[in-house]
Lab assay of single mutants.
Amino acid sequence: EVTIKANLIFANGSTQTAEFKGTFEKATSEAYAYADTLKKDNGEYTVDVADKGYTLNAKFAG
């Protein structure tokens, strides 16, 4: 089991951190699915991958 950390950075400057656990593939998929649920209210996002894929920095356009 691994933990994927998602740093969510919103256009207004606020941030949120979420963690997803499971296999690498499952946890990564859940992190992206969570970011997708936030698109409606926060706009499209881009992701910078860090820490060999164990940290995802998602920046929302607003």
Rank of each mutant, 00 (worst) to 15 (best):
residue 1 E to P: 10
residue 22 G to D: 05
residue 57 N to G: 03
residue 9 I to L: 10
residue 32 Y to C: 08
residue 52 K to A: 14
residue 41 D to Y: 12
residue 49 V to C: 08
residue 56 L to I: 15
residue 55 T to N: 03
residue 55 T to Y: 04
residue 46 T to E: 10
residue 15 T to A: 09
residue 48 D to W: 13
residue 32 Y to I: 12
residue 42 N to I: 05
residue 36 D to M: 05
residue 51 D to N: 08
residue 36 D to H: 11
residue 32 Y to G: 01
residue 15 T to L: 11
residue 40 K to I: 12
residue 11 A to D: 07
residue 24 F to G: 02
residue 45 Y to T: 00
residue 60 F to S: 00
residue 57 N to C: 08
residue 16 Q to V: 13
residue 61 A to W: 14
residue 12 N to F: 05
residue 28 T to G: 02
residue 54 Y to K: 07
residue 45 Y to S: 01
residue 56 L to P: 02
residue 3 T to M: 07
residue 58 A to T: 09
residue 58 A to G: 04
residue 44 E to F: 10
residue 57 N to H: 09
residue 59 K to F: 15
residue 31 A to G: 02
residue 48 D to Y: 12
residue 41 D to C: 15
residue 59 K to V: 15
residue 48 D to H: 13
residue 60 F to N: 02
residue 38 L to G: 04
residue 42 N to Y: 15
residue 7 N to L: 10
residue 8 L to F: 15
residue 32 Y to D: 01
residue 48 D to K: 10
residue 46 T to F: 09
residue 33 A to H: 09
residue 53 G to S: 03
residue 10 F to H: 03
residue 6 A to G: 03
residue 11 A to G: 08
residue 15 T to R: 11
residue 59 K to P: 05
residue 57 N to R: 03
residue 40 K to Y: 10
residue 41 D to R: 08
residue 9 I to S: 08
residue 56 L to F: 10
residue 6 A to R: 00
residue 28 T to Q: 09
residue 1 E to G: 08
residue 7 N to M: 09
residue 43 G to Q: 03
residue 59 K to T: 15
residue 6 A to H: 01
residue 29 S to F: 13
residue 42 N to G: 06
residue 31 A to L: 08
residue 46 T to L: 09
residue 44 E to H: 10
residue 42 N to R: 10
residue 19 E to G: 04
residue 23 T to S: 11
residue 49 V to K: 08
residue 24 F to R: 06
residue 33 A to M: 09
residue 42 N to M: 11
residue 35 A to P: 01
residue 29 S to A: 15
residue 46 T to D: 07
residue 49 V to S: 09
residue 19 E to M: 13
residue 49 V to I: 14
residue 40 K to P: 11
residue 36 D to I: 04
residue 58 A to K: 02
residue 52 K to C: 15
residue 4 I to S: 00
residue 55 T to F: 04
residue 10 F to G: 02
residue 10 F to K: 02
residue 50 A to D: 11
residue 34 Y to P: 00
residue 29 S to C: 15
residue 2 V to S: 06
residue 60 F to T: 03
residue 34 Y to N: 01
residue 16 Q to W: 13
residue 52 K to Y: 14
residue 22 G to Q: 01
residue 30 E to R: 07
residue 12 N to D: 15
residue 24 F to S: 04
residue 45 Y to H: 02
residue 10 F to W: 04
residue 54 Y to M: 11
residue 28 T to A: 05
residue 50 A to Y: 10
residue 33 A to D: 08
residue 5 K to M: 09
residue 50 A to E: 12
residue 7 N to E: 06
residue 50 A to S: 12
residue 44 E to M: 10
residue 29 S to T: 10
residue 42 N to K: 10
residue 24 F to V: 06
residue 25 E to L: 10
residue 22 G to F: 04
residue 52 K to P: 03
residue 44 E to N: 11
residue 32 Y to V: 06
residue 39 K to V: 15
residue 5 K to F: 10
residue 45 Y to V: 05
residue 55 T to H: 04
residue 35 A to W: 14
residue 58 A to I: 15
residue 49 V to L: 10
residue 19 E to W: 15
residue 28 T to L: 14
residue 41 D to A: 12
residue 19 E to F: 15
residue 14 S to V: 14
residue 10 F to V: 01
residue 26 K to T: 12
residue 8 L to V: 08
residue 52 K to E: 15
residue 15 T to M: 14
residue 27 A to V: 03
residue 2 V to K: 04
residue 22 G to M: 01
residue 11 A to N: 08
residue 60 F to V: 02
residue 58 A to L: 15
residue 58 A to N: 04
residue 22 G to H: 00
residue 47 V to N: 01
residue 57 N to Y: 12
residue 10 F to T: 03
residue 7 N to S: 06
residue 46 T to G: 04
residue 21 K to I: 11
residue 14 S to P: 06
residue 1 E to F: 13
residue 31 A to S: 04
residue 23 T to A: 08
residue 46 T to K: 10
residue 19 E to Y: 15
residue 34 Y to V: 02
residue 53 G to P: 03
